[in-house]
Simulated scan of single mutants.
Amino acid sequence: MIFVKRDPNLIPKKLLKVAERAQVQLEMLPADQRVAFIKKKSHIWRAFKRHLRAMSYGKCWYSEAKGPQSPYDVDHFRPKSEAQRSETVKDEGYPWLAFDWDNFRYSAERSNRPSTDEETGEVVGKSSWFPLVDGSPIAIWDDRCTKNEVPLLLDPVCRKDVSLIDVGSDGRMRPSITCVGTGKKRVKASIRHYALNLPDILEARQDVMRDVNDRVETLLKSIEAANSFEEAADAIPVEDQRKAITALTMPNSAFARAARAKLIEKGLAGLIAPPEDYPAIVA
């Protein structure tokens, strides 16, 4: 997971107006007609997909997966028609947020839809899961106190949430070094419900870390050679190698969090791309 900075300027005003009109209609409906209306208007949030995709450089906001063969959804962070709070408790969720783009997250299918972890047999995927931390208030139609809720799942648009989770040396997502107490429970729940440690995604993350490690070893040898043979130093591609490593930490690279973690592990955090060098987002 990596922080996603949302930009409303990337969304056409015409599309925002369409969503606003649907919201006005929804507000006037009786409770027993809302779910059917929301389902009928599913094309509205789907129309936001490419604009949400641009905000994360084409990556899943939860897993950082990126690829043309991976199906992607527009997930409602707070479920629009049913919220599963636990194995036995569920409620109507957050129907008033069905057309609110602030509630949309660009998600790879395996993070958003139920599937089975091939190693554990456990059902993973967010789907309608939206548990809250014990003691949290629960927003309802007549009291929309979502700002007072404390979700158990981490939100990629919240910097504090993203700081709670990190990549371990084995490539598995885990609590960060500063994550304690309830934070650890949130990370554990997020890893499961966003399917962050499934075998395929774990392997892809490990591949990135191995690539970074190999490139770093090559860079260090090049630096050593340049320092040993100063007369030939300018011919050794140290800068090109450095740029190639730094590029893997850019937010447009798949599993950039894993690349950054490997550099930090090797004591080379200085090779991580600074925000001012991030590529521009193009809608």
Rank of each mutant, 00 (worst) to 15 (best):
K66C: 11
M1E: 03
I236K: 09
S70V: 11
A233W: 00
R172V: 03
K147S: 14
K188I: 04
M209F: 03
R172K: 14
V282H: 07
T146N: 07
A31S: 08
W96N: 04
L16M: 13
M250G: 11
N103V: 10
T182K: 11
I245W: 01
V124Y: 02
Q33K: 15
F229L: 13
S128E: 07
D240Q: 13
K90L: 10
A259E: 05
K14E: 14
C179G: 07
I236W: 04
I272C: 14
A54N: 06
S128P: 00
R113G: 02
V18C: 02
Y72P: 03
S56R: 03
K39N: 12
L268N: 10
A195G: 09
R78S: 03
S253A: 15
R53C: 13
S163T: 08
D155E: 06
W61L: 04
P71T: 03
A22N: 08
A195V: 00
R192P: 00
G93K: 06
E64W: 02
V208I: 14
R85L: 15
A65F: 00
V4P: 02
S253G: 07
F99C: 07
K17E: 12
E92G: 14
K80Q: 04
Y94A: 10
D200Q: 13
I191Y: 02
I140Q: 08
A31T: 11
H193F: 12
K59F: 04
S42P: 01
F99Q: 04
V187M: 06
D240M: 10
L16A: 09
D117L: 11
K266D: 11
A258S: 15
K40R: 14
E239W: 02
D166R: 06
K40L: 09
Y57L: 13
R172T: 11
S70N: 08
I2R: 13
S111I: 05
K160Q: 11
A283Y: 01
W96Q: 05
Y278C: 09
K221T: 13
L10I: 07
Q25Y: 06
C158H: 12
T88D: 08
S63T: 15
E217Q: 12
L248M: 15
A254S: 12
A31Y: 00
R34I: 11
Y106G: 12
R186W: 01
I236H: 09
S111R: 01
I177T: 14
S107F: 02
E87Y: 06
V18M: 09
T116H: 01
L10E: 02
I191K: 08
T182F: 00
Y278D: 15
R174N: 04
N197K: 08
R50Y: 00
V238P: 06
S107D: 03
M250L: 14
R110Q: 13
